[in-house]
């Protein structure tokens, strides 16, 4: 019984193979690049030039189309990094540690974008670039967590140990994610509640809501693209002596 619970499907084990991941990731990359480009361009042009202005905030609300995807991704990427780290720890998959490592820079970038665009949006809306509000402060803590994970990962030369240490810090750090999510409900904050939920009908008209959906989906595609690129780079760096890589068309050019 115990064995059947822990027996994983074939594709799961395949994902743990650097050779399989390198090949499959390479075939997915152009599709994610195309999807990210189309979705982001479509969503941003629609949001900037065609969506109606907000009746309260005027045109400054258009910052939402870059701020909200960055904020959603900053948290999703951290969760993804922790899940990849946990998979690496439990099933001893080197590729999972590589995926977790690939999440750090892009996750930190989304957090910086969320904080900076939020600060810019705050000025015309609240009259201040920064307030020590629960949502803003917990997002700043998220950026510090990314910085900690990055520093820890780079401080340890042995990749396997670095992967384990990073995974543990990422798993512990996920405690901050529900704090960010529920900060607007648990405390009195200036920050508005979610503009976007999967369970409830949107409070905005479709002309305002759909561009946001496009930029969120485009940002997810861009994240997957960058993770695939960075993970494949790590595979190239660590597998250079293996026969499969020496015979791969990326190396032989044939």
């Amino acid at each position: 019984m115990t064995q059947s619970i822990w027996r994983m499907p074939r594709w799961f084990h395949q994902m743990g193979s650097p050779k399989w991941f390198y090949g499959f990731g390479g075939s997915l990359q152009p599709w994610f690049a195309l999807a990210a480009f189309v979705l982001l361009t479509w969503g941003i042009v629609w949001g900037l030039a065609f969506a109606p202005a907000d009746y309260q905030q005027g045109n400054s609300f258009r910052i939402m189309y870059v701020h909200v995807p960055a904020a959603i991704l900053s948290q999703s990427v951290f969760l993804g990094m922790a899940v990849a780290g946990a998979v690496g720890l439990i099933w001893k998959m080197k590729v999972a540690f590589m995926v977790a490592r690939s999440c750090i820079a892009i996750g930190a970038t989304f957090t910086v974008i969320a904080l900076l665009t939020g600060a810019i949006w705050g000025k015309p809306t609240w009259g201040a670039y920064w307030v020590w509000d629960a949502r803003l402060t917990s997002t700043l803590v998220l950026l510090f967590l990314y910085a900690g994970v990055m520093a820890l990962n780079q401080a340890i030369a042995e990749r396997q140990i670095a992967g384990k240490a990073t995974a543990i810090l990422a798993i512990v750090g996920t405690i901050n994610i529900p704090i960010i999510k529920y900060s607007v409900e648990w405390w009195n904050t200036l920050h508005q509640s979610s503009s976007f939920t999967l369970t409830a009908k949107p409070s905005m008209p479709a002309d305002m809501y759909l561009p946001l959906l496009l930029t969120v989906l485009g940002s997810y595609c861009l994240f997957v693209l960058v993770v695939l690129m960075r993970t494949r780079t790590q595979i190239l760096q660590t597998q250079s002596g293996t026969s499969w890589l020496m015979q791969h068309r990326d190396i032989t050019g044939v």
Partner: peptide
């Protein structure tokens, strides 16, 4: 009147994400 706020936000979004893709590509 909101142009400077909106355009600088979009500029940051694109600049930082392009930098990330460019860095990942150059490392590859």
């Amino acid at each position: 009147g909101h142009g400077p706020y909106v355009w600088s936000s979009y500029g940051l979004f694109f600049a930082l994400l392009c930098l990330n893709v460019w860095h990942a590509r150059s490392q590859k």
